[in-house]
């Protein structure tokens, strides 16, 4: 089933996430990161950081830690079993540390059909702000497969 093209330009409800030390330590463990700037506040401070440094891809994870119940799959009416991550990009303006509070403001940038609709790309652009200042720009492209197409 095709994704509704009317979603292009539609805003995703903005939300705010507190970046917590425990979350960052768990993430470091999950990805095998052993540099103490990501796990030990004293080591982070000794390296000139305010607190634990947030790893570069954690922005994506923080955005998925919504507490408002918003569900992207329901929003775009897609089946998560048929979604693959196609592309991901980050533009960094400022480092983020534990204790920061990040606000994510997303918009559906584009929806592109390929292979006669058998594959669709949902492109989201998300601005990340801290105290109203931009800290990063995140773009993600999801490939949604239509299992019925071409059969």
């Amino acid at each position: 089933m095709a994704i509704d093209k009317d979603l292009i330009g539609k805003r995703i409800p903005s939300h705010t996430v507190d970046i917590e030390r425990g979350q960052l330590r768990f993430f470091a463990k999950a990805i095998g990161e052993t540099d103490p700037v990501y796990t030990d506040p004293e080591a982070a401070r000794a390296a000139g950081h305010r607190d634990l440094l947030m790893p570069p891809t954690y922005l994506f994870c923080a955005d998925s830690r919504r507490s408002d119940g918003f569900d992207m799959a329901a929003f775009a009416d897609i089946d998560v079993r048929h979604v693959l991550h196609a592309e991901q990009s980050f533009i960094y303006h400022r480092p983020v540390h534990a204790g920061d509070s990040l606000t994510f403001e997303g918009v559906v940038e584009d929806i592109v059909s390929k292979k006669g609709g058998a594959l669709e790309f949902l492109v989201l652009l998300i601005e990340v702000l801290r105290d109203g200042e931009p800290v990063a720009e995140v773009r993600k492209s999801l490939a949604v497969r239509d299992p019925k197409a071409g059969k």
Binding site: V37, L53, P55, P56, T57, A86, E87, Q88, S89, F90, I91, Y92, P95, R139
Partner: peptide, 10 residues
Amino acid sequence: QERIRSFSVR
């Protein structure tokens, strides 16, 4: 890390 300006993958 603070020197990384952008990071993208396909």
